[in-house]
Simulated assay, not measured.
Amino acid sequence: MSVELISVLIAVVAVGATLAGLTVSGQRAIRAELAAQRRDFTAELAALRRDFTAELAAQRQEITELREQISELRERMAHLAGLLDGLREAIAFQRGAA
């Protein structure tokens, strides 16, 4: 083998090794960046889940309060209906007696 051929082979091997090193280094950087993004995404998702859970609990509490208020209004309306029935009977009794 000639010296020129050996020097070309060494240059090709050196360029190949350099490209392999750059590729491996780039892939490591990409993996590290993806891992960091995954951690950030997981943390953000957990925060959103906590917020959603808290908001859902608050809305359930509001619904419970509204149901209690509606129940109270039903009772009051029933009481008023009873009073109106009594008033109607009293008026009808007075007209009948007169």
Rank of each mutant, 00 (worst) to 15 (best):
E4I: 14
L5V: 13
I6H: 13
S7R: 14
S7E: 11
V8Q: 14
L9Y: 09
V12M: 15
V13M: 15
V13E: 13
G16D: 08
A17M: 11
T18H: 13
T18G: 13
L19F: 00
L19C: 02
A20I: 03
L22Q: 08
L22R: 08
L22E: 05
L22Y: 09
V24A: 14
S25I: 01
G26N: 04
G26H: 07
Q27D: 09
R28D: 05
R28W: 00
R28I: 08
A29Q: 02
I30G: 02
I30M: 06
A32S: 04
A32V: 07
E33S: 02
E33H: 04
A35E: 11
A36M: 05
Q37S: 07
R38Q: 04
R39T: 10
D40R: 06
T42M: 05
T42K: 10
E44K: 10
E44D: 06
L45I: 03
A46D: 00
L48T: 10
R49H: 04
R50H: 05
D51L: 05
F52C: 12
T53S: 12
T53L: 08
A54G: 02
E55M: 03
L56D: 14
A57Y: 00
A57G: 12
R60K: 11
E62D: 11
T64V: 13
T64W: 03
T64S: 15
E65Y: 02
L66V: 07
L66A: 10
R67N: 15
R67Y: 05
R67D: 15
E68D: 15
I70G: 06
S71E: 14
L73W: 04
L73E: 15
R74K: 09
M77I: 15
M77Q: 12
M77K: 08
A78Q: 07
H79R: 08
H79D: 14
L80M: 09
A81G: 12
A81K: 05
A81W: 08
G82Y: 10
G82I: 03
L83K: 13
L83V: 04
L84G: 02
D85N: 10
D85S: 11
D85T: 07
L87P: 01
R88V: 00
A90V: 00
A90F: 03
I91F: 05
A92N: 13
Q94V: 06
Q94L: 04
R95I: 02
A97S: 14
A98E: 10
